[in-house]
Design a protein around this nucleic acid. Sequence first.
DNA 1: GACCAGGGTCATTAACCCTG
DNA 2: CAGGGTTAATGACCCTGGTC
Length: 279
Amino acid sequence: MAGICKMCDQTLGRYNKSGYCRKHLGTANAQNPEWREKHRAGVLRKIKYDPEYKAQLAERARRIGSDPSTRAKRSETFRKGRYWELGNAAQEKGSDARKRAGRSIRERRLSWCPPHLREEYMWLMRSQRVPAAEARVMIEEQNELELARWRRSIGYVEEQKPDLADQVMAEIETGEERDPFLRALSAAVIAFSVSVDDIFSEAREVALVRPRQALALVMRRHGKRTTSDIAAHLHRSDHTSAINWLKRGEEIERKDKEFASAVALVADAWNHEVGSMAA
DNA sequence: GACCAGGGTCATTAACCCTG
DNA sequence: CAGGGTTAATGACCCTGGTC
């Protein structure tokens, strides 16, 4: 049965089901959320299953976008409409959108860093002022240590590396004090009235932990050594020991003047300024 | 502190999608 | 085929977070 278009006086054909003439059908569809959703799904489907089409679309948009006259026109439109104000209003300071942007970039930049070590990486960067590249090496070393531990736990036998701490002991025994670490170690022995064995021992008495903290601080600051390296020099296999020495050492240094001056003495030795110490 | 990349805003462009 | 919607990238700008 023929009817009249809902939007104009146009007589409709006998098979018309929409109730709209050809001219107004598009407008009616555009106002129908269901139709729009269906249409949208169709476009997305095309893009999803036709990579060539998608690439075509992108290429075209790029081409148009990079045309100087189009760019100038868009800039003008944007400036005139002050559209950035809308963009900024939509994501105020501290908004979820901005945080999301921050998280996204963090995720991309820290993708190399195992999630459980990221806090430690940031601590090295911020509190310890370790340059990014160096902090990354330290974290990667730590990760490698953890992986090695895990490999051992499942029975995988690794090639043995020479023990750095053993090398240090050998140098002490032969009296060849070429290493700044050995000078600093000697200074720590004097400054804290302990023995080398005490420093290298497993004991956790405060009197023995202090020289380790002082040595760690000096190695970090003056030798730019990694925490793994510091730990190995002080007979520890895990670099987290060094991190703890550094953390606690800094705190104590701020509060305890006596400890601070002992650290300075060890630092002098490291830097070869042994004149004051020998006296 | 400077620099970079990403996220948010809307308009613009051409080609394609969908429906009857 | 008509007609509006959708897609892509891009423009300016600010803020966030990482890096130097």
